[in-house]
Amino acid sequence: MKMRIIWTIYTIALLSFLYIPIFMMVIQSFNDSKYLTEWKGFTIKWYSKLIESNEVWASFINSFSIALASALTSTFLGITLAYTYIRSKSRAYDFLDIAMYTPIIIPEIAEAVSLALFFYLSNISFGWYTVFIGHTAFNIAFAYFTLKAQISLISKNVEDAALILGAKPIKVLFSVLLPIAMPAIFASMIITFTLSFDDFIKSVFTTEPGFPLLPILIWTRAARARATPDLNALATIMITISLCLASLYTYYMYRRS
């Protein structure tokens, strides 16, 4: 019994270590004072300051559109790769499986600088497409592994039954396979969206100063010690969105199993 109390205290301590900074940031976003150490009263003025900022909106729209496009593309390509790998008997796809691991293993900063070099040497001007490509090259690998694990749970018998009962292959795909795989597809889209939306290192190396992105905006404000309280407001909004996406993701994964 005494042991149990020690375990509980330890768990609570580690969880507090994780959550206290985040909670403090949320509370701070409603603090009328600019300074961390004094509480001057409740306010939403940082939120209104944030909403009025054109820079924040521009960065948000850029980051959001890239994350959405990257999530759709990588999940679409990821599912075809994962499906083929699982159903095909050809050994050639084993090589593909290994080729997919590399983006996950190699350091992100090395991947980012190699992309920057590649775009620079190919004379491609930096902007929406270069960021999109950088995020998607990594996300395809990530979507592939997320979907592979889930699709391997779908029995081939279901497809065979549909084929034997006279469904055309394309109908099997749209009426049988995709509906079963839908939770996994949603889960993959949510995770690839988040990876792209939050990505800083690859974004920095594949964008140019005239094309602002949200993580870079956060970085320039947080790292150069010129943080203003509206950063806390932005953080609170982003945390809320992230946690909503997290619960959706958990819901879809949980429903599958």
Binding site: L18, I22, M24, L36, A235, A246
Partner: peptide, 27 residues
Amino acid sequence: IILIAFIAPFWVNFLLRTYALYNVLYM
């Protein structure tokens, strides 16, 4: 519940998590 509590912060932007810690360490 405890598992979800440990997983949930993963979803929070990495820069923001580090910035949040920066504030606490600063204090």
